[in-house]
Simulated scan of single mutants.
Amino acid sequence: MGVKGFVEGGIASIVAGCSTHPLDLIKVRMQLQGEKGSRVPNPQQIQTLRPAFAFSSSSAATMAAPAGTALHVPTPKPPPRVGPISVGVRIFQTEGVAALFSGVSATVLRQTLYSTTRMGLYDVLKQKWTDPDSGNMPLTRKISAGLIAGGIGAAVGNPADVAMVRMQADGRLPANQRRNYKGVGDAISRMAKQEGVASLWRGSGLTANRAMIVTASQLASYDQFKETILEKGLMKDGLGTHVTASFAAGFVAAVASNPVDVIKTRVMNMKVEAGEVPPYNGAVDCALKTVRSEGLMALYKGFVPTISRQGPFTVVLFVTLEQVRKILKEF
């Protein structure tokens, strides 16, 4: 019975992950908007340029400035941030339709490792912790089961998660800086060789935190919403109930997980060159630098594509799961 839960959850997760992959890619690109490390000059360097190196024919004040005087040139404005539709259209126009599925091989591996583990473990814990008399499981136990299953699943699937983020983000880099991974196998092997095996678990703490939040909010809330709908007689147990409970669960998961997801994406995507200081010293450092330079709402970057993905992903996940359960019921 326990093994069946892993198989059912794995099949549903792979179908859901592949079908919503373009939305996930757009979300990752949006979460990296405004990140420091672009080719924008350092404001302090600009402000201390000598007139000879900051000459402008349109500025009489610059021409008259005495040698050795520091110039105060306005800080360049960051490029405007664009929405999910614009990001998707730009990817399609500049990189082609295939780019919308960049990293899909990593998605398949990630869902096979991470989601199969979390869905299966949640199902096992659900069976153990469900009240045999009422047939229901208290919400606190559902949340606890989600936290445990999500944390273990994240540890198993982190290498595929890192590879997926990098492959999705690669197209936004200048051509000479792209990693150009051939596939998830190539990404994982090159990371291990060039950056060490430990790089495969970069951001693993964040991945675990996000996975625990997503699993607890997504699976627990789906079960809770479904039970409430059925108990109150609002709908019968069928497709309508599954879709309604799924959308509600997807919204809860998106709101709860987006801040951790933004930081996870940035930590996993950062380039660490030999002999150079890494952009971030960890999750807390990344969060602080992000909020200081871009504001608190930067933690909700990519929320529109996140909710746009979480909704369909959760619906496809649970609708597929319910159908797979019916098919495998006799096994």
Rank of each mutant, 00 (worst) to 15 (best):
K4T: 04
G5L: 08
C18K: 09
V28A: 00
Q33N: 13
R39P: 06
P41K: 02
Q47E: 09
A64T: 09
A64D: 09
T69H: 11
L71H: 01
T75Y: 06
P78K: 14
V82R: 15
G88N: 12
G88V: 03
L100Y: 06
V104E: 01
A106K: 02
S115K: 02
L121N: 13
V124N: 05
K126Q: 12
W129P: 08
D133L: 10
L139E: 00
G146A: 08
G151S: 15
G151I: 10
A154P: 01
V165S: 13
L173C: 05
K182H: 08
G183N: 14
D186R: 06
S189N: 06
A192D: 02
A192F: 01
G203D: 04
A208N: 07
A208S: 12
Q224N: 13
T228A: 15
E231T: 14
M235R: 11
D237T: 02
G238D: 12
H242S: 13
G250E: 11
F251A: 12
P259M: 01
V260A: 13
K264Y: 03
R266P: 02
K271C: 09
E276N: 13
V284D: 07
T290K: 07
A298G: 08
A298K: 10
G302E: 05
I307M: 13
G311C: 10
V316G: 01
V316A: 05
L321T: 00
K326C: 01
K326Q: 09
